[in-house]
Amino acid sequence: MNRLFIVAQAELARRLSRELEGDGFSCYVAQPQEDVSHIGAEVVLVEVGEGQPYQKTEELCRALKLERRLPLVALVSKNAFAAYAGELKTLLCDDFILEPYDRQELLLRITKLIGEEKHAGDQQLVIGDLVINLTQAEVFLSGRAVELTFREYELLRFLASHPGRMYSRDALLNSVWGYDYFGGDRTVDVHIRRLRSKIEDAEHNFIDTVRNMGYRFRKQE
């Protein structure tokens, strides 16, 4: 399922989220004042001119485009267009749509951007709300970045690449740490515990313990 992140005032964010989820997207929302520097999504919709000064929106778009390299669609209200028409070209957005936001037009623009990004081609593993970007070595849960150590990332990548398959601690040591690693196999338990604390909660369970044997990444329905 394609993921959208909507940065907009609450009423607009709820309406767009409801409409786009009906079209098969998984939507996450944030208010313009929130820190969204670590979000991850196929496309980000950013409301312009409402809820925060134009300069702040410009800085946000610049950060998301240059640092996160995310495709952006600017949602430009009538008031914002009247006030900033000459400045909109400075926004580092891939596309613009003017109020009123027609659902079909917005859907076409989003779908086009997603197609272009997939053609450009970051490789990803998508498991429910968990996204592992194999090209950038990044992990996102429910649209937000998860900070992992190198070994935690490699352990997650390996297990998620083989869902449903059980691996013993020795097998994980050999595959993730390497054959020349001489530490005890309990280091696997420690890293699994730390990894679970970062990607699992009441709504998300990805790694199963196979008693007296090892671990496996759960197959998602």
Rank of each mutant, 00 (worst) to 15 (best):
A137M: 11
L91Q: 00
D102F: 10
Q52A: 14
E200Q: 07
A30C: 10
F96T: 01
T209R: 10
M1E: 11
I199D: 02
R169G: 06
L113C: 07
P163F: 01
L156G: 00
A41K: 02
T57I: 03
L45F: 03
E67C: 11
G214F: 01
L113N: 05
A63P: 07
H38D: 10
E47G: 04
T149A: 15
C61L: 05
K78Y: 15
R3C: 12
Y28R: 05
Q52H: 14
A63N: 09
P53Q: 05
R186V: 07
D23K: 05
V176Q: 01
A74S: 11
F5K: 00
D185G: 15
V73I: 07
Y54R: 04
A160I: 03
L155S: 01
L91R: 00
A160Y: 01
Q52N: 10
I97H: 03
L106H: 04
R3P: 08
I192F: 07
V176Y: 01
A74M: 07
S17F: 03
T209N: 12
E99R: 06
F96A: 02
E147L: 15
I110P: 01
A160W: 00
A8M: 03
A202G: 14
I39T: 04
L106P: 01
D185R: 09
L141P: 06
F182S: 13
V139W: 00
Y54P: 02
E117L: 07
E11G: 15
Q220M: 15
G40K: 02
E50V: 14
R62V: 09
D94R: 08
V29R: 07
S17E: 11
L70P: 00
P71F: 07
A82F: 12
L92Q: 09
A85R: 12
M1Q: 09
S17L: 09
A41H: 02
G184I: 11
E59C: 08
N212S: 12
D35V: 08
G164V: 05
G184A: 12
E99A: 08
T209Q: 08
L88C: 05
I97Q: 04
G40N: 03
G121M: 12
R103P: 13
G121D: 09
P71N: 10
L159Y: 02
E99M: 04
Y84G: 04
L75N: 02
A13W: 00
N174W: 08
